[in-house]
Design a protein around this nucleic acid. Structure first.
Lengths: 149, 149
DNA sequence: ACGCATTTTCGGAATGATTCCTAATTAGAT
DNA sequence: ATCTAATTAGGAATCATTCCGAAAATGCGT
């Protein structure tokens, strides 16, 4: 395992990186980063807004989008578009596979080895991969036991 | 290789399946199915509209969406949401990997073996996969040679 | 601690893809 | 040829996201 990815570690790492790049650490951003660092549920922008308001009640949706966009541009979070309406944001930027439950909507990370290397793909096709997205859609342990609907 | 997937084959197979299920084969649908069957470029809904109008000039966007939704519900095409605005539609519903070019936007299919079995995932996680989506983002052969920007 | 330049925030308006609605049309069965 | 249910067209509605401009706040230098 390369990083220990505890919430505290992750949070202070993010804050340090932003400070180094000269971003201002406003109370709004502190709240957003804090909640993202401790969240593996892949929240949507409105989820982020709702939770950020517990600390900063007057934060606006525009601010949430502005902050998420900044984190995204800096490569500190990953944005995922799914088959539902809203995008989801993932603090786990390492290559991994998402397991998306079709019943409850939960998104788990599957951290096993990614079984296909960019080099192999480029060798066979000439296409040079720089990023990836692997997902399985199905039913999580809880939902598959309760019946799919 | 399991199916020969020539355009003609694919088109008549789609039409047969729809007829069997009792769908009406209108001129609008014939045009849409014809163009999708011969298209591996993963067109968006507005691409489909534009090309369908060559055969059926008065076809409306609502009709295109209605037809795409029907094909999708019947499992005859696959809808993909990407990081651009519009969804894309893929006539290739077998499991495969998409190679998405960040410069020209082209989406190629990579038909090699999918290197991770649903059974393996379920064994390790309890999650039961039913569908998948694997993508690499990068630069296609043409774009990588011309420089990325 | 204070002022300043720049970034960030906020609220609302604009955008744009998709969905919804309703009346008119049409395919396919009888 | 008639009938009925499905389909179409066009426009309105929706909803996430982006854009805009004015006000506020950060963090720098002094």
């Amino acid at each position: 395992m390369r990083h220990s990815t505890g919430q505290k570690d992750r949070e202070s790492r993010l804050l340090r990186q932003l400070r180094e790049k000269g971003y201002k650490l406003t109370s709004q951003r502190l709240a957003i980063i804090h909640l993202l660092a401790g969240d593996t549920s892949h929240p949507s922008a409105s989820d982020v807004l709702k939770r950020a308001r517990k600390r900063v009640p007057k934060i606006s949706m525009s601010t949430v989008y502005y902050a998420l966009d900044m984190l995204k541009r800096e490569g500190l979070i990953r944005e995922l578009e799914f088959y539902e309406k809203e995008n989801r944001y993932d603090i786990n930027i390492s290559d991994h596979i998402n397991l998306v439950c079709r019943k409850c909507g939960k998104i788990e990370d599957f951290m096993g080895e990614v079984p296909l290397s960019p080099t192999e793909v480029e060798g066979k096709t000439g296409f040079r991969p720089e990023g990836m997205r692997f997902e399985f859609y199905g039913y999580c342990r809880a939902c598959k036991n309760r019946g799919k609907r």
